[in-house]
Design a protein around this nucleic acid. Structure first.
Lengths: 117, 117
DNA sequence: CAGTATCCAAAGGGATACTG
DNA sequence: CAGTATCCCTTTGGATACTG
C-alpha cells in the first residue's frame, strides 16, 4: 500500500459526498431519467414512459418521486383534462450533468475495450 | 416535450454506452474501491478491507472479481508466506476517474443543498 | 491472509391488473 | 393520463463461521 497522491487526500467530507452521490444516483434508471429530461426538457409522465423502453409505470413513478424528494426534478400538475403531470430538471438537477457525461464517455471507451478483448 | 438540444442527440451508441457504464459501476461499493485504489495505489486485500469501513470479505471478494473481469483492476498473487494478493487499477480502470470526480463534486454540492433545505 | 460457505434480509426491478 | 396495488423474482448486501 503506497503513499497518498499529493492533492487527493481523502477527506471525510469528500468520502461522505461520494457515498451520498452513489446512494442518490445509483440503480438502473435514475441517471437515464435525468439524461432524458436534459435532452428533451419538460416531459410528461407518458413521454418519459415512451422514451424509456422497458420501464414500468410503477418503477418510473417511484424513481420520479425519489428524484423529486432530492430536489433534482420538479413535478407539476397541469390543469388539463384529463389532468397531466410534467417533470423537469431543477437547477440542482442540472448539476448532475458532468456525472452523466463522464459515464457516457467511459461507457463508449469501455464498449470498445470489450470488443477488442 | 420540447425539441432536442442541438448537439446532444441521443445516439443509440451513447445510450448503450450509458447503460453499460451504469450496469458496470452501480452499487454501493465499486466506485469506492476504484477510488481507494486510485488514492493509495496497489493494495492488498486486507488493506482494502481496513480502509473500507463496513464491507465484509465476502462482498469485497465478489466486487473485486467483477472489477477484474471487466479489466478495471488487476489481481496479482504474491509469492510470500503466507501468500498475499495485490490489486491495482489498470489503464482502463484509470479511465473511470472522471466519473469518480464528478460524483464527488456533485455530492459536495448536494450535501450543501440538503443542509440548506 | 485471502478468501469461501451458509444463511438471511432488504432493495431493486418487473408483470399484470386496476383506479380516479 | 398518471399513477397504485399486488405478487413475485433476482440482486445486493450483511452476519457469522470456516479453510488452505
Amino acid at each position: 500500500m503506497e503513499k497518498l497522491k499529493g492533492k487527493l487526500e481523502p477527506s471525510k467530507e469528500r468520502q461522505l459526498a461520494l457515498n451520498d452521490a452513489i446512494e442518490l444516483l445509483s440503480g438502473k434508471w435514475k441517471i437515464i431519467i435525468l439524461r432524458n429530461l436534459y435532452l428533451y426538457g419538460t416531459m410528461r409522465f407518458k413521454d418519459i414512459m415512451e422514451v424509456m423502453a422497458g420501464i414500468t409505470s410503477k418503477v418510473l413513478s417511484r424513481e420520479l418521486q425519489q428524484l423529486a424528494e432530492n430536489f433534482l426534478i420538479t413535478r407539476t400538475v397541469n390543469d388539463t383534462k384529463p389532468i397531466t403531470v410534467s417533470y423537469a430538471l431543477t437547477d440542482h438537477g442540472n448539476k448532475t450533468l458532468p456525472v452523466i457525461k463522464s459515464l457516457i464517455e467511459f461507457g463508449l471507451i469501455h464498449r470498445i475495450k470489450i470488443k477488442l478483448s
